[in-house]
Design a binder for these strands. Structure first.
Lengths: 144, 144
DNA sequence: AATCCACGTTGTACTATACAACTACCTCTA
DNA sequence: TAGAGGTAGTTGTATAGTACAACGTGGATT
């Protein structure tokens, strides 16, 4: 059984390796929707629409970044804006039919990739791994 | 106990969330050395020097990307090049004294951050989490 | 020697990102 | 109710990271 420090070291190394690779892998697998666009579109779908500001706050992105990402998604016809009648400043963002479709495709294909990677894991291990990841991310959010 | 699919779904979500955040977090914590530069420099340190081509192959980066990263590290005085006397085309890259110093600092501070995030984990959980991450990354390397 | 291959650099282009300045609009207060 | 101040979003500008293609130089093979 390795000492605590060794495990932490491994976790650090593996998380770093993963982070380094993730975007490129995602981009290779889904040229039509980057990791960030995917995430934003998924959030819109999940929340049944929200504001650019909410996306920025939720994902710790600058509002200008979100503005441009959304502009790109709109240009692709994946997102539409509906001005809030209550407050003319606000645009509520929604996936379009087409956007929802693409999102569904990418989600399915991502899900399949994960299933393949995890195919030979048994159910207990999967469950524990999922729990650990949630715990780790929660701690990271808490501590910055 | 969640079903297999739910665990996979959680793993996917959490890995994605982590990947999205990682670079920005690293950049905030260590403005002096990006996640990529850090990784490259650490590899040089670890391997006691290697070629740009080796870095590119190991990290799946284009050689031009590595070339520019190394150029930047050299400009900062963190890396030096030694032309291989056996083959004039080859430059063996090494961290400088200064580079090794900075690397050590960043490593220490990253390690501390991980220790903080994982402070309230018990030893068994840490060990299992480390094992799972290694296994996951190995599978990802295998399957692309 | 001629050809081919390996190593690295440079030109070019694109994406993601931040910060700052700006416009338009809302809200609150004197 | 007019002005002050705050909020939502866009645009200008700059930077980092990345890839691909074209190239130069030097080693290896035939």
């Amino acid at each position: 059984m390795p000492h605590r420090d060794e495990s932490v070291e491994t976790i650090q190394q593996e998380m770093t390796a993963f982070a380094r690779r993730a975007r490129a892998t995602a981009a290779r697998m889904h040229p039509e929707l980057s990791l960030v666009s995917y995430t934003l579109l998924a959030h819109l779908d999940d929340q049944q629409g929200c504001r650019a500001t909410d996306l920025a706050a939720h994902y710790l992105l600058d509002k200008s970044t979100v503005s441009r990402q959304i502009a790109a998604l709109e240009k692709l016809g994946f997102v539409e804006r509906r001005v809030d009648p209550e407050d003319q400043r606000v645009q509520v963002l929604h996936p379009t039919e087409k956007g929802a479709q693409v999102l569904a495709n990418v989600t399915a294909s991502r899900r399949q990739a994960f299933h393949e990677r995890l195919a030979d894991w048994d159910e207990d291990d999967l469950n524990r791994f999922a729990t650990y990841l949630r715990r780790y991310n929660a701690a990271q959010e808490r501590l910055g």
